[in-house]
Computed example of a mutant assay.
Amino acid sequence: MFIRSERLFLRPGWPEDWQELHSRIADEGVVRNLSSAPWPYTAEDARWFAQQPQDQRLPHFFVTLPTSAAPAQLVGCVGLAEFAGKVELGYWFAREHWGKGFATEASRAVLRLAKVLGHRHLVAGHFIDNPASGAVLRKIGFAPTGRVHQRHSLSRGYDAQSVEYSIDLGSPSDCDGGDKDAAGVMRAA
């Protein structure tokens, strides 16, 4: 699967992406915000992740900046995964791309796809010492559940407090959210 947003191109990872992936994520400030990435993040970790097959119901994407020069620059990763029996949105972006709105834009694109795939409810979270991720989640429509729980962080090597968020996407038939009458029934255009 491929997704094009206003500024970004989301695509599957390929085995030959491992070096660029490694150069973007091998930053302790990035990895410490993830639950399942180890620190230090090695070349072998990047090779393994870059060759992971896509799950059609839980896809993950390399986020790139399309340019006229090839190849497009990898700026991060976004996708869906299963965690504790729920579908979870997750993402990371290279430090030099923080604060540019890329996490918000890429996550919105994946939310639209999640709805098309039939997911009705998603969860997400962030470690309590990463409030910027909470700001992204709120911008894209997630609401705090009021729950803070312990979640293991492989990079930190211990359980850390994680703030939980959720979003209801609605049924797949109302993907664009428009064209409904007062009763919520889709109208013909």
Score class of each variant (00 low, 15 high):
96 E>N: 09
17 D>Y: 00
74 L>N: 00
167 I>L: 14
93 F>L: 15
159 D>H: 12
100 K>A: 10
131 P>T: 08
117 L>I: 05
27 D>P: 05
105 E>F: 04
13 G>D: 08
15 P>A: 00
48 W>L: 14
47 R>N: 01
188 A>E: 15
25 I>K: 08
6 E>S: 13
48 W>R: 14
152 H>Y: 15
178 G>H: 13
46 A>D: 05
44 E>D: 15
102 F>W: 11
80 L>K: 06
57 R>P: 01
179 D>Y: 12
150 Q>G: 06
177 G>P: 05
38 P>Y: 02
39 W>H: 13
52 Q>I: 01
117 L>C: 08
180 K>D: 03
112 R>W: 02
153 S>Y: 07
176 D>E: 14
65 L>F: 09
189 A>G: 13
130 N>V: 08
4 R>D: 13
135 A>H: 14
88 E>K: 08
115 K>F: 00
38 P>S: 09
179 D>A: 14
17 D>E: 08
82 E>L: 13
103 A>S: 01
149 H>C: 12
188 A>T: 14
38 P>Q: 02
134 G>Q: 06
68 S>I: 08
5 S>P: 03
106 A>Q: 07
95 R>L: 09
139 K>L: 07
170 G>Q: 12
187 R>K: 15
134 G>K: 10
177 G>D: 11
107 S>L: 00
162 S>Q: 14
58 L>Q: 01
169 L>R: 04
115 K>I: 00
125 G>Q: 07
130 N>R: 11
120 R>A: 11
154 L>Y: 07
138 R>T: 13
54 Q>K: 08
111 L>E: 06
106 A>T: 05
98 W>T: 00
78 V>A: 02
152 H>G: 06
131 P>S: 11
186 M>A: 15
61 F>R: 11
105 E>Q: 04
54 Q>W: 03
89 L>T: 01
114 A>Q: 06
95 R>W: 01
68 S>N: 14
43 A>P: 07
111 L>Q: 02
91 Y>S: 12
19 Q>P: 01
87 V>G: 01
145 T>G: 07
23 S>A: 15
60 H>G: 12
161 Q>A: 15
68 S>W: 11
45 D>T: 08
125 G>S: 12
25 I>N: 05
138 R>W: 00
141 G>T: 01
50 A>C: 06
113 L>H: 09
127 F>M: 06
92 W>Q: 01
36 S>E: 13
69 A>Q: 15
139 K>W: 01
69 A>N: 11
33 N>V: 06
57 R>Y: 05
166 S>R: 13
140 I>T: 04
188 A>Q: 14
136 V>Q: 04
180 K>C: 11
30 V>Y: 00
145 T>I: 05
66 P>R: 10
121 H>F: 09
159 D>N: 10
165 Y>H: 12
73 Q>I: 13
14 W>V: 13
99 G>W: 02
186 M>C: 12
86 K>E: 15
171 S>Y: 10
84 A>Y: 10
158 Y>M: 13
66 P>T: 03
187 R>W: 01
21 L>G: 03
116 V>E: 15
19 Q>S: 08
23 S>N: 08
163 V>H: 07
79 G>R: 03
108 R>F: 05
95 R>P: 03
57 R>A: 15
90 G>C: 06
21 L>Q: 09
40 P>E: 04
72 A>F: 12
143 A>E: 14
74 L>V: 04
181 D>Y: 07
57 R>F: 03
46 A>V: 11
8 L>D: 03
